[in-house]
Amino acid sequence: MASAKEIRNQIKATQNTAKITKAMEMVAASKMRKAQSAVTESRSYAEGIHTIVGNLMQAHPEYKHAFLVKRDEVKRVGYLVISTDKGLCGGLNTNTLKKAISSMRSVDDKTEVEMINIGRRASQFMRRFGTKIAGSVEEIKDQPELVEILGVVNLAMEKFLSGHYDEVRLVYSKFVNTMTQTPTELCLLPCAEPEQEHTGYWDYLYEPDSKVVLDGLMRRYVESIVYHAVLENKACEQSARMVAMKSATDNAKDIVADLQITYNKARQAAITQELAEICAGAAAA
């Protein structure tokens, strides 16, 4: 049996770990609240642009923007995968990456696959996995800004427009609630037409002209979808980290309790042995 001193050191070390994980849990909890409110705050823009694009589609059923046209033959697919920069957030990235991998495997063999990463974890993983990486952005702030992701979104859009990609898919974690995050995959380009109930024919007046406006709007529509996904992923990251750190703290406490019992037993055994030795010594004398 380990000596009482060794066990005491172990208890101390475990308690220190518990303190750190507890602190990380609290930090993640506060960041999660901020991340969740960021998701809510960005909603009015996303909903606004969704409605406008829906109205436009309805007013112009004959004009199809390049982003909406489905291609007959899919030769190359771009995957935009959103992950976190830091670890210690449970199975969040693993689940997202698993989803991405299984989706990549499901496309047929002739189709090429390329990656665009948001977040360091996906880059690290994909480098090992051996998929071609077309672009990546890392070190996303806790409060992500649109400009941080514009580069990669534009890259994906350009490659789609130039015909390099025939499809762009987005994989990220959807925030359901603090305990649940679902890895989600959706087709970013060509994007699904927003649904809109029919309210009779009418059209906008355009300034400067419909094509310019439509083009700018479609780009912002795609950007806003990706931005929203990044925000949700951030909220997922913080809540997953909070939960992971909470269970780490609980585990550390269990270990401390176990060690404490072992320590008490060891101490008691030492005392008993000492007493027995004294008694034996006294009896011999």
């Binding site: 436009l56 009418w202 007046l205 400067p208 406006v213 709007l217």
Partner: peptide
């Protein structure tokens, strides 16, 4: 500040989309 010049908009304006 519309792309083609300043726009003044009053209620009941007809549907408009502008950069």
């Amino acid at each position: 500040p519309g792309a083609a010049g300043e726009l003044g908009i009053l209620p009941r304006h007809s549907p408009l989309l502008s950069a």
